[in-house]
Amino acid sequence: MAIIRTENLHFTYQGEENETLHGVNLEIEEGSFVAILGHNGSGKSTLAKLFNGILLPNEGRVLVNGIDTTHEDKLLDVRRTVGLVFQNPDNQIVANVVEDDVAFAPENLGVEPDEIRRRVDSALKTVGMYEYRQHAPHLLSGGQKQRVAIAGVLAMQPRCIVLDEPTAMLDPVGRREVISTVTRLCREEGITVVLITHHMSECIGADRLVVMSEGRIVADGTPREVFAQVELLRSEGLSVPVTTELIYELNQDGWVLPLDALTVDECADAVAAALK
């Protein structure tokens, strides 16, 4: 069963005339790593907040593990199933000490103190921040803060984590820390990961890539399939990885290279083979 399923989802912000989402139908398979790509204002962040009932649809519905997010009695069930991590790490850390922050969600859920301690330690170890458990969050680097935020969500033991542009405010080092952490969560812990981003390079490791534009899904497939649609991505104001772009440009010049070479090595292999 899909962990998140949206049916004909429409959404308009209060006080605004234009609809932000126009009928989104999407199923996220449990255990998969899905990247959602789109330029600013494409509706991708709105979608994230609809996934855990922070926003509620105007039309259509969102099912989390089969539960409708408008079902008020089940709201906590929805939110502990789908955890959200946001862009600005400073604005989602609530406590003065790292481990107290990670404990926040299980405390809200009324978990027993011993069990909270166990979950906090395990979440911090998973994101590699256990040694920093007594630190003050404002003294950490951006990447470290974002990993603490991920641990804070992990402590709810969610089945799915949705990250809304988690790397937008980070430097390259922090970006790599966060992406490798979420990739590991999906591959080793079996947690569903939905990564919302506009960095192409972060999507390469995903199982599936969904491209949003003006509140609609305009492409959906494996990264190889989607990045091969170079013209579409360009017209959406998105760039493609340099590897794909090179192959595309060379093909324009009459080469015949497979467009699905994504990594540097795959690209070099393809070009080198064509020259042999």
Partner: peptide, 15 residues
């Protein structure tokens, strides 16, 4: 830069 990385990978492949 990505382009430099690809160029290096190509050199390693004898281009």
């Amino acid at each position: 830069p990505q382009a430099a990385a690809i160029a290096q990978a190509l050199r390693e492949r004898g281009v």
